[in-house]
Amino acid sequence: MMQSLKKGGGSFRHLLGLDGVPVETIELILDQAVHMKDIMARPFKKVPAMRGTTVVNFFVEPSTRTRTSFSLAEKHLSADTVSFSPSTSSLSKGETLLDTARNLEAMQPDILVIRHHATGAPHFLARALNCSVVNAGDGIHEHPTQALLDLFTIRENKGKLAGLKVVIAGDIAHSRVARSGIFGMVSCGMDVRVAGPRTMLPKGIESLGVKVFDRLEPAVEGTDVVMMLRIQRERLGEALFPSAREYFRFFGLTPDVLALADKDAIVMHPGPINRCVEIDHDIADGPRSVILDQVTNGIAVRMAVLHLVNQARLEALGLGVSVTAQAKTTEEGS
C-alpha cells in the first residue's frame, strides 16, 4: 500500500504491500538484503541488530516456507520471537481477529508478521494496533516479501531489473504473488507479461501495466525470466480448468515451451511446486531453475524488511540511526 511506505525514503513503519511503492524504496530493501545475505554466508550467522525487539509471527493461514523463512530471519537478527497459528490460538475458540490481535499487542510486541486468508487483514490490523505490521500474504491481494525476494533473485542473476522481460504464468486472478510481483516489477521498469487460461486472468489486469496472454507460448517468447505460479488443486472444483493433465499440456512449462525464452532465461516458482502440473520435472531441477535460490534469498530479504521496519520504529521513538550507519553496524556486529 502506498500509505505504508514513505515515498523516496527509506523509512517505513509497516510493509503492507508493494502497490505504489517507488523503485528507490525497493532498491533500498534489495541493497540491504545483499548485506543480510553476506551475514547468512558466515559461519556464525547472527547479528544483534534486533536484540531486544519482539516479533510475533501470526499465521492464520497454513504456511511452511514463509513462516520458517521469517522465523530464521528474525533469529539471525537476534529478535525475540513467538509464533501463533489458529490451532494454537484463541481464534479456534471463536475469538475475533481484532480481539486476538489486541491481546497479542497487550504483550507489547514490536512487530507483527501476519498471514491471513482475508484480503486486507494486515491493513485492518495496522489501523487497529500500535505495533508495526508486516504482510506475509493476505488473501488474493499481496505477498510483498515474496515479490521482493523474487526481484532480489532476478537482480542477483541478471545484474539489473529495468528492461528485463518477465512472464508470470498461471492463476493470476487468485495469486497474491502475482499481484505483488506485478507492482514491484512494473515499478522497477521491467516488461511484465501475464499468461494463463482466461478463467484465471482477472479483468482489468492490463491496467496494472502488464501485457496479457491467454496462451503460454507467445508469452514466453524472448523472455529473460519465466515465473510459474502454483496451481491450487483445490480450485479444481471451481471450474477454472478441467484437469491437471489438460492444464499441463496447454499451460505447463515444458522444455519445448522454455526453448522459446531467451537462451539465458531463468525459471522461477514461489513454491510449493506441482510437478507435471505447472512445471516439468527436468525444468524444476534443471540448470536454469533458481527456485531454491529464491528460498535462500527469502531469508535475506525478510531480514532486510524486518530490519528497516524496526529502524523506522526506533526512529519514531527517537532512537533511530541512519540506514547506512545501521547497515554498517549490522556488518560489524557479526
Binding site: 502497490d19 484480503t119 493476505d138 488474493i140 491481494h141 482477472p202 479483468k203 482489468g204 496494472l208
Partner: peptide, 18 residues
C-alpha cells in the same frame, strides 16, 4: 464478490462481481 469487476477489484485483490 466484494467489488465490481475491473481494474480496481484486480488492484485491491477483491473478489469481483461482473
Amino acid at each position: 464478490g466484494l467489488a465490481p469487476e475491473g481494474p480496481a477489484a484486480t488492484r485491491y485483490g477483491l473478489p469481483p462481481i461482473p
